[in-house]
Amino acid sequence: MGNESEERGTVGAALALEAALCEPLPLEAGQSVALLGESALAAQAVHIAGGVPIVVRPAGTGWAVGGAGGGWRLNGEQPDGLPLASAAVDHIVVPRFDPRAHLPPAAEMRRVLRPGGWVAVGVRPARSRAGDRASPASVAACARWLEAGRFEVLGRYGLVEGATDRSALVPLDHLGAVQFFVERLWVPPSRWPGWARAAVARLAAAGRYGWLFKQFVVVGRSEPRRAVGER
């Protein structure tokens, strides 16, 4: 039982992330969700949550809206523009954030999102360099990317697909919750020696929780709080 769940690896973990992406969003039935990237599973998760997914996938140097295969390229003359009208969608989900890949500028995401709309970004394991683990640096890069588009970053979540029969989505901005997770719920891989488990638990308790999570979800909102006097 334990072997199976521990060795499910990246494929199983990716499935859990797809389902978890919609969790932190205030998604209501019938709301439109733009999925920026190829992800049938994320589209299914939006469906299950009652939303209407609009898949927007990379096409050449731009982005296109469409179903499986080919896609429908609208914006050849505008490489990074999204083929959606302004304020056209209620929320945006980016299933995979990879700073080295072709991402739309966050400002363009802000344009197509209605005021007050939310964005959820999955920071998943890179295929090559990062092995099967997304790094906390990727999470920081993701937050910077959102902030560059004037999104307010509302939360960061770590995702663990459990070595027991549970998966967990942990709010990383709440240190008490992270510590509770480490102390009460987390099960390290059985191949880890005892000292390594203890060391990671101590690091996590000190706020350095990157070792615990393979994947992350970063959530933002399109209306940052403005300082007094700011226009």
Partner: peptide, 26 residues
């Protein structure tokens, strides 16, 4: 804030949320 726990399934029957107040460790 909440920790979401669900059985290792993409469509669980019951999802459990542990809800934490600000700064609380339990």
């Amino acid at each position: 804030a909440a920790i979401e726990l669900s059985p290792g399934s993409d469509r669980p029957d019951v999802t459990t949320y542990l809800v934490f107040g600000s700064g609380e460790r339990e």
